[in-house]
């Protein structure tokens, strides 16, 4: 197997590009895809101060690495979620990555700074873990960006992530979510601009980037993601991808090209009035004098005694069993 660019020995085959690459030219292909995404969607200006939302996983560390390499001024923010060993390990990977490269990393800890963690919040809300977790992260990234004077927040969502979310939204014909599924969220009403530079690269490519660049990241899955719907969608899309390489890219990038413009008028009609939360000042969709969802979550979760990861997982498994039995009847 030979590299498409230099005819040297290849280390990876990319059926969707109908090509194989050596390490050097694989990295070059990835950089070009990121530059194209940034350019096509007007994501980041060279003078912008960038805040990267890092988790210790392959995607966020890879995008941080790429942006720094491409000459952007990018700092990291890590939120310690308190998901047992998984969180401890992912924090170590993140801190090591930043220290080795002399990059600025800020760590916010849910337990130390706000008095709760994700397993406890999951118990308190009675919803799937990713719901309290996603909301907490969004709030803290927004806050850190605004407080730190950053121009843009970068997340590591890749092509597989976006295609899976698109697939879920299309299965439910959730037109409002479809209309808002864009790689750039402009800043408005006190929310920072948010962008996804990895939309043209797959998970496999991001993992390969990390292996080639010697980036250690947490390979283990978040224990609370078990049975997550998105993983199922990704597997389905990968079955199609193996049969017909390029399917994921044409599905998602084609959506951006040809469907998103059709939906644009719907995206614009979303609820637009916001008021500051009376407790933290963050913008919220509620009426004058209301408290934001994050502050309410903190209040309820911090008052609850800490719950372990194992307890929440056991509970969600037994719930599923009950639901499965109920649906048989």
């Amino acid at each position: 197997m030979k590299c498409r660019t230099c005819r040297g020995p290849a280390i990876i085959e990319l059926p969707r590009h109908n090509a194989n690459f050596c390490a050097e030219h694989f990295l070059q292909m990835c950089r070009r895809q990121v530059e194209k995404a940034i350019h096509d969607h007007d994501m980041i200006k060279k003078t912008d101060r960038v805040l990267v939302a890092v988790s210790g996983g392959k995607d966020s560390l890879a995008v941080w690495d790429m942006l720094v390499e491409l000459g952007y001024q990018a700092d990291g923010l890590y939120v310690a979620l308190g998901i047992g060993e998984y969180s401890e390990e992912s924090r170590e990977y993140t801190e090591r990555f930043a220290a080795e490269r002399n990059l600025k990393l800020t760590v916010v800890s849910l337990r130390d700074d706000y008095g709760y963690d994700i397993p406890t919040a999951t118990k308190v809300t009675g919803r799937v873990p990713c719901s309290a977790c996603g909301m907490s992260k969004r709030h803290l990234f927004d806050k850190a960006a605004v407080d730190g004077g950053y121009d843009v927040v970068v997340t590591g969502h890749n092509l597989d992530d976006e295609a899976a979310v698109l697939f879920g939204n299309a299965l439910r014909w959730d037109v409002e979510y479809l209309a808002r599924q864009l790689p750039v969220l402009p800043s408005r009403h006190g929310f920072p601009k948010k962008v996804k530079p990895l939309i043209r690269l797959t998970e496999r490519e991001m993992a390969a980037w990390c292996v080639i660049r010697g980036i250690d990241y947490i390979v283990e899955e978040c224990p609370m993601a078990e049975g997550n719907r998105h993983i199922g969608y990704k597997e389905v899309l990968n079955v199609l991808e193996e049969k017909s390489p390029g399917t994921k890219a044409s599905y998602y990038l084609g959506f951006l090209d040809r469907m998103a413009p059709v939906l644009a008028s719907i995206a614009a009609t979303g609820a637009d009035s916001v008021t500051p939360c009376v407790q933290c000042g963050a913008p919220t969709g509620g009426e004058e004098g209301s408290v934001c969802a994050f502050c309410r979550l903190v209040e309820r979760s911090a008052a609850h005694e800490p719950v372990s990861v194992e307890l929440v997982r056991k509970k969600s498994r037994s719930q599923k069993r009950v639901q499965a039995e109920a649906s048989k009847k």
Binding site: M1, A10, I11, I12, E13, N20, A23, G57, K58, D59, C130, C133, G134, D160, E203, R204, M206, A207, A208, V211, I212, V219, E221, C222, A225, E226, N228, H230, I231, K234, E235, N238
Partner: peptide, 23 residues
């Protein structure tokens, strides 16, 4: 990284790393 057409030897030690993540 090793490509798909590479022959693995009986003394090789390899890792097969999944790349799908949830959340």
């Amino acid at each position: 990284l090793i490509p798909g057409d590479e022959e693995l030897d009986k003394d090789d030690v390899i890792e097969i790393r999944p790349v799908i993540s949830g959340g």
